[in-house]
Amino acid sequence: MGTIKKLDDYTPQERKVLDPLYDVIDPELFVNIVDLGLIYNIEVDSEQNILITMTFTTPFCPMGESIIDGVENVLHIEFPDREVHIDLTFDPPWSPERLTNEGKKMLEMS
């Protein structure tokens, strides 16, 4: 089972990577992937390479490829000189508890 980092636990350096990911929207739910809780972890290594560990709401999500492309695109615009690694995991699988309060509001849960 992979590590899941809470939003408050990101370092300022990781936070800079997280911020552009708010622009990647799930086209079915109209909620960004951070508030949807799809981002499990962000790591920036000593060579400034970026490792994103993330998931989808369901395996083989029909919109999965476009979400991955969105993550790559926003990070390449923000950090053109850095390498981006994306590790997709379903361990643990996504669950509604992963939604942030903002995400819940967007889905009219609150």
């Binding site: 490829e65 476009s66 492309d69 969105g70 993550v71």
Partner: peptide, 21 residues
């Protein structure tokens, strides 16, 4: 709409402003 949207905008999402499905 999602099938067609994927065709047109999958590679563009995040780069430019795209319509929703």
């Amino acid at each position: 709409p999602f099938i067609v949207w994927n065709d047109h905008y999958k590679k563009l999402t995040g780069k430019v402003k795209v319509p929703l499905p």
